[in-house]
């Protein structure tokens, strides 16, 4: 592998250090991963960039308590596996979401309990404020318990692709990368997940962007 030029990060940074570069270009994720092979601490830049989003995804699926720990664990695993990173991918998010999804898979029971608890109580421990926002907008269509009960009934693999699409905003190709499965598999799992959710939600497609109109 050809390493890029050495890092700007310096061990001997001192009070008088000053960088006078202008018109900066920001390193892409693949460059950061590659550079971190030479200077491991650079990998923290990737953490700064993506940790909040990874936390949000995990908290959505497992709640806030596990999310703190698994967010850290995701980046530790990514760091240990970084030599295998495909540097053709400039965006590391699918890779990180894939690692996070695998970690979530180890807590499958916890996830089931999490969704079922929301379905029973109508409250979500991961959230800042319970569903007033959602309830305001979608009360005519459905309730949060019905939604989460429907999510709880999906298989793990269906929930993975649905939430990687809905929550993480990944495309089917990126999800295929993240999960290490063929793109066709992602499409079929997503199709089944959407069909099940539509049935449970009285016809509402969970990935329908037209529902944005409710938000306006």
């Amino acid at each position: 592998m050809t390493l890029p030029p050495a890092l700007e990060v310096r061990d001997d940074a001192n009070e008088l250090d000053m960088i006078s570069h202008v018109n900066e270009q920001v390193a892409t994720d693949d460059e950061i991963v590659t550079w971190s092979l030479r200077d491991p601490e650079v990998f923290a830049t990737l953490y700064d960039r993506h940790a909040p989003a990874i936390h949000r995804y995990i908290a959505r699926r497992l709640g806030p308590d596990l999310a703190d720990d698994l967010m850290a664990e995701t980046f530790l695993l990514a760091f240990r596996q970084r030599a295998r990173y495909d540097t053709a991918r400039t965006d590391a998010r699918p890779w990180l979401y894939g690692i996070a999804t695998n970690l979530i898979g180890r807590h499958r029971r916890a996830e089931g309990r999490f969704w079922r608890a929301i379905a029973r109580s109508g409250t979500d421990a991961a959230t800042e404020s319970l569903a007033e926002r959602a309830a305001d907008r979608v009360s005519a269509q459905m309730s949060l318990p019905a939604l989460t009960a429907a999510l709880a009934r999906l298989s793990k693999s269906q929930r993975d692709v649905l939430l990687l699409t809905a929550e993480a905003g990944l495309s089917p190709v990126e999800i295929a990368d993240a999960l290490g499965v063929p793109k066709g598999t992602v499409h079929s799992r997503l199709g089944r997940a959407r069909r099940k959710m539509r049935e449970a939600l009285g016809g509402i497609d969970p990935l329908d962007p037209r529902e944005d109109a409710i938000d306006e």
Partner: peptide
């Protein structure tokens, strides 16, 4: 925004302490 994300309540962001602890472990 898709309708599923819209229907689910907002997830609270990680606390500063959680972010710092995770970063500290990595570094």
């Amino acid at each position: 925004m898709n309708s599923l994300k819209q229907m689910l309540p907002e997830v609270a962001p990680p606390s500063r302490e959680a972010l710092l602890e995770g970063r500290g472990r990595l570094v």
